[in-house]
Design a protein around this nucleic acid. Structure first.
Length: 499
RNA sequence: GGCGGCAUGGCCAAGCGGUAAGGCAGAGGAUUGCAAAUCCUUUAUCCCCAGUUCGAAUCUGGGUGCCGCCUCCA
């Protein structure tokens, strides 16, 4: 089997074949940098991160381009509100973007072009469209003439001739009058009073929203690329317009595969800025939701389906992740005790999955995992493979945590070890990386309250011996509140664990 | 009004014609002063109706409900 992807362009599940053998070119629509990213962005970029990781693990050389839209009305509005400038607002939010994406373990794109730095390409493309008669200017604005593009509507299944004008009448009348067709869209917008603007043959102004992506794809990857990515809310008009511009200007198909991710919903409704029902990635992380919990939550659903966000579903993912994570960490924390080779530092390289196919004990799981991802990135099933593999390992982790030294026979130990490194390898394809807790990473504060804990345990033991269980439970609860969990062992010894 | 998607156990979620993955939660048992943890066992006929088929959650037709896009949006 080989990778199959649902192509929005053909509305079908298709076997993926790259233009150049062994190489994949990907363009992903990025964010408009006027604010922090929310969970919807996280979903999109995590899904595409998995696509990228999987392609790399299959041996492809992937060039991944993602833009920053740094010219936009919302950025201007924000700048005005903050008594700042457009570029200051963009700059700040680009930093924040990287902070969030890095936290989520999303591999940075190969390059991240910005609209303000691609103006030449943009002007050239508009000029080209003008020469081909597909663009016209009115009072410093330049519009794309939709009727000139024979295939207009092919991505979003819209038929212009049958298309009734949007009943809600949201389009501004003034602008309407200037357009030849209501679906025409701006390639270049004349500057308004006091706005930042850039020179052009049509006067001072700034690029329309769609043109930057067309220009960037051409500049960074060429006329035709393998895969174009984005949220399903971008299909129309953004991607439709991108196709129209690029294909009209270049005379070539823009992208062979168009992939779109489903929305994150809140109470059945799309999470969006305008509805105000969004939760930022930052807020979630600050509330103690770990990055990998978020990743697990997102990848447990298929990328094309809507995903409902609730506190309960995050809590469920968090519990699930804790279990999986304990298995992923076992070889990192306990390799000395288990006499396992010292694990390599986490790298952004991916072991070739196919090597596991020949390993009898891992072959099945490996094949299941590959089949799942081949099937339009079925991460949900891939994760179930991870959970199956993790069972004996999290059990091992648990025994170790509780002070047992499960010194089984050597063969068994070896099998666990290879299972563990296999699990870590598979999880890495999904970007699920072991999270050692803060306390484990920085063991300060550990020593000075240890004596206190031992004292408390002694006190509790005395209470237990005198059958004063209420007092014993009180002591346990107090420690628990401080993150110390007590475990009574069979032999009467009480051990404690930091959580 | 046009285009598209979805409906699976208490919750989330796979499934793509051969008899329901996985996660969370729950139940029973072992263990425990009680817990925690662990181990074992366990919980669904898939929105409704009709049809195709030896066989359908999966295909077809008709309902019902929900959502997205058509305006900025991942």
């Amino acid at each position: 089997m080989s990778l199959k992807l649902t192509n929005t362009l053909t509305k079908r599940l298709e076997t993926f074949k790259s233009l150049k053998p062994g190489e994949v070119s990907i363009y992903c629509c990025g964010v408009t940098v006027y604010d922090l990213c929310h969970l919807g962005h996280a979903r999109s970029y995590i899904a595409w991160d998995v696509l990228r990781r999987y392609l790399i693990s299959q041996g492809y050389q992937v060039t991944f381009i993602q833009n920053f839209t740094d010219i936009d009305d919302k950025i201007l509005a924000k700048a005005a509100k903050e008594h700042s400038t457009m570029s200051q607002v963009s700059e700040k939010n680009i930093k924040e973007f990287h902070k969030d994406m890095d936290a989520l373990g999303i591999i940075r794109p190969s390059r991240m072009p910005r609209a303000t730095r691609c103006l030449n390409g943009i002007r050239e493309m508009i000029h080209k469209l003008e020469k081909k008669g597909a663009a016209y200017s009115v009072d410093g604005d330049v519009y794309f003439a939709v009727m000139k593009h024979i295939d207009y509507g092919k991505l979003s299944s819209r038929d212009l001739s049958e298309q009734q004008l949007n009943a809600d009448g949201r389009i501004e009348k003034e602008e309407e009058a200037r357009k030849q067709s209501p679906f025409d869209f701006a390639l270049w917008k004349a500057a308004k009073e006091g706005e930042p603007s850039f020179p052009s043959p049509w006067g001072e102004g700034r690029p329309g929203w769609h043109i930057e992506c067309s220009a960037m794809v051409l500049q960074e990857l060429g006329e035709t690329i393998d895969i174009h990515l984005g949220g399903s809310d971008l299909i129309f008009p953004h991607h439709e317009n991108e196709i129209a511009q690029s294909e009209m200007a270049n005379g070539k198909q823009l992208a062979n595969y168009w992939l779109h991710n489903g929305m994150v919903n809140v109470g059945g409704q799309k999470m969006s800025k305008s509805l105000g029902n969004f939760t930022t990635i930052r807020a979630l992380l600050n509330n103690g939701v770990s990055p990998m919990t978020l990743r697990l939550f997102i990848l447990q659903a298929h990328y094309r389906k809507p995903l409902d966000f609730t506190n309960e579903s995050i809590a469920a993912a968090s519990k699930g992740w804790a279990r999986l994570n304990s298995a992923l960490c076992v070889g990192l924390k306990n390799h000395q005790q288990l006499n396992w080779p010292k694990p390599e530092a986490q790298e952004q390289t991916f072991s070739n999955l196919k090597k596991y196919i020949s390993d009898e004990s891992l072959s099945n799981s490996c094949q299941q995992f590959i089949d799942a991802l081949d099937d339009d990135l079925n991460t949900s099933v891939a994760i179930s493979v991870l959970f199956d593999l993790s069972r004996p390992l999290s059990s091992l982790a648990n025994q170790l945590k509780r002070g047992f030294s499960p010194l089984g026979d050597e063969a068994e130990n070896k099998e666990l070890q290879s299972k563990w490194s296999f699990l870590v390898g598979l999880a890495n394809v999904l970007g699920l990386q072991p999270e050692l807790s803060q306390k484990e990473k920085s063991p300060q504060n550990q020593m000075h309250n240890e004596i206190e804990i031992i004292e408390a345990i002694k006190e509790r033991k005395a209470a237990k011996l005198s059958k004063n269980y209420a007092q014993a439970d009180k002591i346990r609860q107090e420690l628990k509140d401080k993150g110390i969990e007590l475990i009574d062992k069979k032999n009467g010894v009480t051990e404690w664990i930091k959580n």
